[in-house]
Design a protein around this nucleic acid. Structure first.
Lengths: 190, 190
DNA sequence: GTCTATAAAATGATAGAC
DNA sequence: GTCTATCATTTTATAGAC
């Protein structure tokens, strides 16, 4: 386990606070106080509050995009691709609950990186929809508007960060199985 | 159609801005500018920025709670109750897209009304879960953890405000039907 | 790497004229 | 009902000492 740098600690602590109150409501003093130092000291490790948000969001968005490309080229059928997507969201969400909150709720406060983030998000959603359309064509998925199916599944997966902390023992495999059941078995033809 | 009071206009304009940037990032000057007046003039109609948020969120939370009680006592089976809940969310969300954003994302910035809001939300979720458990008991709904089913369905419904604006022609009945298909038919035993 | 001190701007809200 | 003027506070960020 790599030792956490001071910069990484700032990003971790900030993300936790961003989840509680949102990016705009968290001050540099809040972050500093949570670390036991003064706000001015933060600037020895990061350039601005913006930079903290950039690091949190872009690293996650890139991770999702990259994994989606892997899934796309995995050669399995559309239902199994969807299962892999569910696993992907459970894995990343459980490993970075706080960052997922910012990815979902604070992306509009990006500035320099906003267009890049939107490009990544659109690419991800296009890939997702392509899998659904492919599944419909191959008769693996019921013929309902792919937008509605994607909306339902993706919204559920994107909100996992809200619910995972509530699971008492955090049995991720059981959660993944249940989600696959609920989300897929309503889509796949029997 | 009742004429909109100045106070109602402030709440409507503020909610639209809150959806775009979140409560904390919207200033009284932003709201005033969007209305073509000065920030100081707002205070002739409302007491504080907090009050605007209170009005947006509490009126919606009470509407959901009230309708849920109607559904609970409607006497239909559990699947039909779930269908009514889906219709409820589509209706309220399409009528108040901007307010739904605050209900979902800005509730943590409530102060006086925070505990009251949390009570309403908990009551709503308990009622929802009771319907699911009742359906499982009566063999109308598959036997998966009700928490996971509620999470999946409720998260999708709570995020409708994000997606409804994207529907080009806003065919709400078709959307409701598709949602019922996707959300319920994966849950109801055939 | 952290501190104190402080600059420069933004913010919620009030007072009082019209 | 809206305005100008203004207050008190908060906020991001920098400078320079230790």
């Amino acid at each position: 386990m790599k030792t956490e740098t001071r910069k990484e600690e700032i990003i971790r602590v900030a993300a936790k606070l961003f989840k509680q109150k949102g990016y705009s409501a968290v001050t540099m003093r809040d972050i500093a106080k949570a670390m036991g130092i003064k706000a001015a000291s933060l600037y020895n490790h990061i350039n601005s509050k913006q930079d903290i948000l950039n690091e949190i969001i872009i690293s996650l968005a890139e991770a999702f995009t990259q994994e989606m490309k892997q899934i796309q080229s995995s050669g399995v059928n559309s239902i199994d691709k969807l299962k892999k997507i569910i696993e992907l969201h459970v894995n990343i969400s459980s490993q970075n609950i706080y960052g997922m909150a910012s990815l979902n709720n604070d992306w509009m406060h990006l500035k320099d990186k906003l267009q890049y983030y939107l490009k990544l998000r659109n690419t991800y959603e296009d890939d997702f929809k392509t899998i659904l359309i492919d599944g419909i064509t191959k008769n693996e998925i019921i013929n309902i508007k792919p937008e509605v199916m994607m909306f339902s599944i993706l919204t559920t997966l994107r909100s996992l960060y809200i619910w995972i902390p509530k699971k008492e023992q955090l049995n991720l495999e059981a959660l993944t199985d249940d989600l696959i059941n609920v989300l897929i078995n309503g889509i796949a033809k029997e």
